[in-house]
Design a protein around this nucleic acid. Sequence first.
DNA 1: CAGATCTCAGCTATACTGAAATGC
DNA 2: CGCATTTCAGTATAGCTGAGATCT
Lengths: 151, 151
Amino acid sequence: MGTTAKDAAASRLTGAPSWLLTQAALHASQLASEGFANAGARGDHYRLLAVLAEFGPASQAALGRRSCLDRSDVVAAVNELEAGGLVERTPDSSDRRRNVVTITTAGARQLQRLDEVLFGVQDELLARLSAHERGELVRLLTRILDRHEGG
Amino acid sequence: MGTTAKDAAASRLTGAPSWLLTQAALHASQLASEGFANAGARGDHYRLLAVLAEFGPASQAALGRRSCLDRSDVVAAVNELEAGGLVERTPDSSDRRRNVVTITTAGARQLQRLDEVLFGVQDELLARLSAHERGELVRLLTRILDRHEGG
DNA sequence: CAGATCTCAGCTATACTGAAATGC
DNA sequence: CGCATTTCAGTATAGCTGAGATCT
C-alpha cells in the first residue's frame, strides 16, 4: 500500500464478494507473476505451454481459445517463446493461413519448472485453508464460472 | 471471446485456484465496470464515495488507505468526482499540506444508486450459489486475504 | 462472396513507481 | 533534518478492438 500508516477499509467493500474476489485475485496474480518472473517467464507463457502440452500442436487461433488469450496477445507470446526456443512455429501446409505451434523439449522442461512454481504459489496463497476448504473454494469458483460460460 | 468456435480450456488451468480466482474476478470486474459505467461512474468512484460515507470527510491520503487506492489515483478520481459535484475539496486549515474531501448530497445519492448497481451485479455473479454457499465463499476469501494483510 | 487466420497498432482499467513542491 | 501530503508523469500487466493482408 505504499505508506506506513494503516486505516480500516470500508465495510461496504470488505463484505462484498466481488471486492473480495478481485483482491484475492490480485494477490494470486502478484504471487504468480513474481514466481514466473523468477523463472524468466510470464503468465501467458505458462498458459500457452500448458495448452500445448495437453492438446498438442495447434494453430495460434486454437491456442488462443484454449488458453483464453486474445489472438493478438498470442502473437506476441509465441514470438517470445519461439525466441527462447520453447516452441516452434511452422507454416501449416494443409491450410496456408495458419501457423502450427509445437512445444519443444526445452519448452516441456520449462513447463515443468513453471508447474512447480505455481504449486508453491497456490500453497502460499491458500496457506490458511484446509484441504477440504481448498476443495470447497475450487467448487464454488467453478460454479460461478459455469454460470458465465454455459450461458 | 471474439470468435465463434469453441475449445476446451486446459485442465492445468481450470483446476488451479489462482486461475479460477482471476477468472471469477475478471467476470466480477467486468460486470461491475459495466454497471458503474451505466450510472456514469467507475469502480474507484464507488470506493471513494463508500469510504467517505462510512468514515466521513478525510484527507486524500487517508482516503487512499481506506479505499485501497493509490495516492496518485485518488488525485484523478477526486478531480472527477469534484467536477461532477459529488464531493467537495477544501484546504485543511489545521494542516496546510492537506485537502479535506467531503461527500455532497448529490454524492450520497449517487452512492445509493451505485450500491444498487453493485447489489445487482453480485446477484448475477453468484446466481448459481445458494445463500449458504455465498457465505462460505465470503468466509474463504476473507481468510485468504487475512493471510496477506495480517502478515 | 462470407468467414477464418495472422499480425500490428492502439486502447482501457487497475495498480504501481519516481520525483518534485510544499508543509509539518 | 526526516517525514507526510498532493500532484504529475510514466511504467506494467491484463484484456480487448479495429483494420489490413492472406487464404479457405
